[in-house]
Design a protein around this nucleic acid. Structure first.
Lengths: 212, 212
DNA sequence: GTCTCACTCCCCGTTTTAGGGGATGGTGAG
DNA sequence: CTCACCATCCCCTAAAACGGGGAGTGAGAC
């Protein structure tokens, strides 16, 4: 590869930040074009000259790294962000990923892991520390096997269920689908029967389990 | 490590199966203790002498590998399964993970990847091919940033919301929490207010967006 | 000591759902 | 040509939820 991959580092701890930059400087296909010591600074600096990849700490003074990712992604949707942090709790992991991070590394890993990760996101991958990946996978285990029950609903029934989940009452649903509220009611009855639930609320909750 | 990691292979294509076994035989810390050419066979054979790790193909004659994982996990919850397949579509990936798979590799990868993956699940990781990981991560991006609205519910309100999602009516919730149905109603009012929704159904639907 | 806030309960009247029926026409499979 | 299944609509009664109030206690914050 001829052109270098450009990287920005967001990390409040000065020593760690400099250490990261130093590591990156020794890599021929990577160039660190910016360093920030806070999320606020990152939001100013990074959009001016967007790098290919951002290495982002989570614990920052003021705005958190997670929040920062969310903001950056709003203005630079194609920006790739790798979280580099000490936190391994599921909640932070999921928040970071939902905010738009493409990778998640724990700081304890070797520097080579970081370099590999940068190359990995570059080629469309999602680098994650081993245990992070497991937590992500466990999230799917919690959801449990798809019951498929929502799938043998008729098209109309699925529409109704979707609108139901949006909080509409029968009459409103009927208006949107140009059918009577009584008809909507019939669908809800069938949905409850097919999904083996007792109420529309439970059906909506089950929809969540089956999808995702 | 002294004791070998035991592995079973489930793969219908004979040549590929034998090739997998051959690769494994050359590794000192891994022992292949079973091979199956179908999901049905796997369900009979594997529980008799459970291996540490199962390598599972998805496309099998009869029952699919995904279904097989779900069944195996029911009787052997601690069994670790790595999907080894040619499919890279999100739907199969998610179904496999939800069924209980711990890892997901594409067949095109090098044999060393397989060995690494077996060792990885053994140490609590979740091996995934690079692009598979990205698809998993993209799933979180689709959900979007947490709105946090469910998080500033009081503990009691969260309990109520959870039970609500399970389909209970106010009286049943009240009984379970040893409070009156009227109190439950008060919580629901507050929940709707705090979450900016108009009904309990919408609140439950929103819960799904915020969690996961 | 006041103030906020979670937790608890209550009332009234109105709207929405649930439960359990029945009914029509259309369409595609066997 | 049935039979199943979908989409559509209707009736009645009873149960549940909603809207919008009020109101008391105890804990912790300031």
């Amino acid at each position: 590869m001829n052109t270098k991959k450009t990287v920005a580092v967001v990390e409040d701890d000065r020593r760690l930040r400099e250490k990261l930059v130093e590591v990156l400087q020794n890599i021929k296909d990577i160039e660190c074009i910016a360093t920030c010591s806070s999320a606020e600074e990152a939001l100013k600096v990074i959009p001016l000259r967007p790098p290919d990849v951002v290495l982002m700490d989570i614990k920052l003074p003021g705005m958190s790294g997670i929040q920062c990712v969310a903001e950056l992604k709003k203005i630079l949707p194609k920006l790739q962000v790798i979280m580099v942090t000490i936190y391994e709790d599921s909640e932070r992991i999921f928040k970071a990923l939902k905010a738009g991070a493409s990778g998640y590394l724990v700081k304890s890993g070797p520097p080579e892991q970081l370099i590999e990760a940068i190359r990995d996101v570059f080629t469309g991958g999602s680098p994650m520390s081993s245990h992070i990946a497991r937590k992500v996978v466990q999230h799917f285990h919690l959801i449990g096997p798809s019951t498929e029950e929502a799938n043998n609903l008729s098209p109309r029934e699925q529409q109704v269920l979707t609108l139901l989940a949006s909080g509409y009452i029968y009459k409103e649903i009927g208006d949107q689908l140009h059918i009577g509220a009584e008809t909507v009611r019939t669908y809800v009855k069938n949905i409850c029967y097919k999904m083996h639930v007792r109420s529309r609320v439970e059906a909506v909750a089950k929809l969540r389990k089956d999808s995702y």
